[in-house]
């Protein structure tokens, strides 16, 4: 339990620090590197939440693909990379973001979340594991090997959104190609 807490709070600290780094860094390239760090730490948080498949997807897509794209774009617009300034909405944005953050924290603290311990089920990370009931064993099995269940859900219950997502990706690829094609004059 203590180890999990330690892992969570250190990862949360690094994640928040890296996110602040993305916003405050003057050099856009360094901001992108902080963004990669924050993506990696989020993958670690997914492992803490028993979402190993998502952790791997996070590393492959965010750390592998998206950050490479961002860094390429920064390098291709290189002469302007030291211009990470703010626009004139700094003060109103402060107020708005503070309000939203207060609302989020208030709601997440004051809501009575109905979690497993309220049912007397010992399936949360760090719970002791003796004399499991059938339900506890079932829930533990689900969270110990999530990938086949995600596959089943994606190709059975969520098959329509799944196909829509592939069409969206195809459209995005074609759109990007059209935008970046060399114009014939």
């Amino acid at each position: 339990m203590l180890t999990l807490d330690l892992a969570f709070f250190s990862m949360a600290a690094v994640c928040i620090g890296a996110s602040v780094g993305v916003v405050v860094m003057q050099d856009v390239f360094r901001a992108a590197l902080f963004l990669v760090l924050s993506f990696l730490v989020v993958a670690g948080l997914f492992v803490l939440l028993n979402a190993e498949f998502l952790a791997v997807v996070q590393v492959l897509i965010y750390v592998g693909a998206i950050s490479i794209l961002i860094i390429f774009a920064i390098m291709l617009t290189r002469e302007l990379q030291y211009s990470n300034e703010s626009n004139r909405f700094k003060q109103p944005a402060y107020v708005l973001v503070a309000l939203i953050l207060t609302a989020i924290v208030f709601v997440s603290v004051s809501t009575d979340w109905r979690d497993w311990s309220e049912l007397g089920l010992r399936v949360l990370p760090g719970d002791n594991i003796e004399n499991l009931s059938a339900t506890e064993q079932g829930v533990r099995d689900v969270f110990s090997d999530t990938t086949p269940i995600i596959a089943k859900l994606l190709l059975r219950d969520f098959v329509l959104p799944f196909e829509a997502a592939s069409i969206l990706l195809l459209a995005a690829v074609i759109g990007a190609l059209v935008l970046l094609r060399e114009q014939e004059r």
Binding site: V22, V23, N84, S86, F89, V97, L101, S108
Partner: peptide
């Protein structure tokens, strides 16, 4: 709360930054 903090940082940056990337 962690998620809310990161969301707020991202929102602040998206609202105030000039560089499109």
């Amino acid at each position: 709360i962690l998620s809310g903090v990161i969301f707020s940082i991202g929102l602040y940056g998206a609202l105030t930054k000039k560089h499109v990337i």
